[in-house]
Design a protein around this nucleic acid. Structure first.
Lengths: 196, 196
DNA sequence: GTCTATATTACGATAGAC
DNA sequence: GTCTATCGTAATATAGAC
């Protein structure tokens, strides 16, 4: 490790600025001029660090996808009953969403206009299928209600979890990461209704 | 009512084409050239019907918002226990989302770059608050679990419902409108867990 | 590594003929 | 109501100096 002097931009530090602007304005709504203003350097200087706008998008969604896929390799996601593994994955998804908030936000808003975007959508689908398989296993083990189709339940649960990126702000006084995780697990598995 | 001869575009028929393209490419990712190709008329002909791209967006999100707000005026949303009213509103939201799918989809993807977009976000917030008040009332009446904060629960439930626009396709063989409504109501109120 | 200047293309919108 | 032609602007990206 060399000395950590970092007065100037690197692809990595530039990325964090770009992702913030992408999320504020939308990827297509963000011009290199916008990025240039936000980063405090000229447009042409950005091209010194990255090949273009799309590379920034690719780096961002890669980071988000890596965080999500790593969950599935963790021990608690691979041992125990399917229901227990599913609960673990749901909670960890909330944690990764919050830990990598801007990157996952961008990932979830990708439309498919460019090759990079289509690749990101493809990998997202792959992750979804892995979690869907877990829910299906939990259903087969009798731990999930039988009156809601598994594929449909998966989509709705993903919808609830992924919606976190639309309102969670780490700086604002409100629900903390732990509270959100608890709430999601309780609602996903137990619903709104008063049980007692 | 005059004769219904309609060989040519009106703002209304043009809107349905535009909204489809907006949803495929994103609003910012859609140029007047894209709309022109999709509608089969020239760019300048579009300007004969509407003042510009933003008017198409405004018409679309207005239609979506009108559909949602009308729910709150319906009798079943205004009489009975708060929990019963909430369940009715949740089910009707699913119906409106599906009935007005492309318009609501566009509404839910608005970012806030233009005045029209900021207005749409403002009205969405208003709708959310009305439903949040219903959930709060249901909690006060003891029909909603006490271990999840009401504001947080509202956001997560909205997240689940709104996510429908990301995958529901009326043409594809899969869950029908009724099945989706049932699934959402069951999961929102009862959760995934096997109750019996 | 950053800048100014600029090439080139695409965009939203308008003018005016038919 | 639709068209072709075009205006002015803003976009991505490059050239070349420092």
């Amino acid at each position: 490790m060399t000395t950590a002097r970092r007065d100037t931009y690197t692809p990595q530090t530039l990325l964090s600025v770009a992702v913030r602007v992408f999320n504020e304005r939308g990827y297509d709504g963000t011009s290199m001029e916008h990025l240039s203003k936000a980063a405090g350097i000229s447009k042409s200087s950005i091209y010194h660090h990255v090949a273009g706008k799309e590379e920034l998008l690719r780096r961002a969604v890669t980071r988000a996808l890596d965080g999500l896929f790593e969950i599935l390799d963790e021990e608690h996601a691979r041992a125990g009953s399917a229901a227990a593994r599913l609960e673990y994955v749901v909670r960890r998804m909330v944690e990764v969403l919050i830990a990598e908030l801007p990157y996952v936000t961008l990932l979830l808003r990708v439309r498919g206009n460019t090759e990079t975007e289509r690749w990101a959508l493809e990998r997202r689908r792959e992750f979804d299928h892995r979690v869907a398989a877990l829910l299906k296993a939990a259903a087969a083990e009798g731990d999930v209600r039988g009156d809601v189709e598994v594929r449909l339940a998966t989509r709705l649960v993903f919808g609830m979890i992924n919606s976190i990126v639309e309102w969670y702000r780490p700086d604002v006084r409100g629900a903390g990461e732990r509270e959100v995780g608890d709430a999601v697990v309780r609602l996903v598995f137990g619903g709104l209704r008063q049980s007692g």
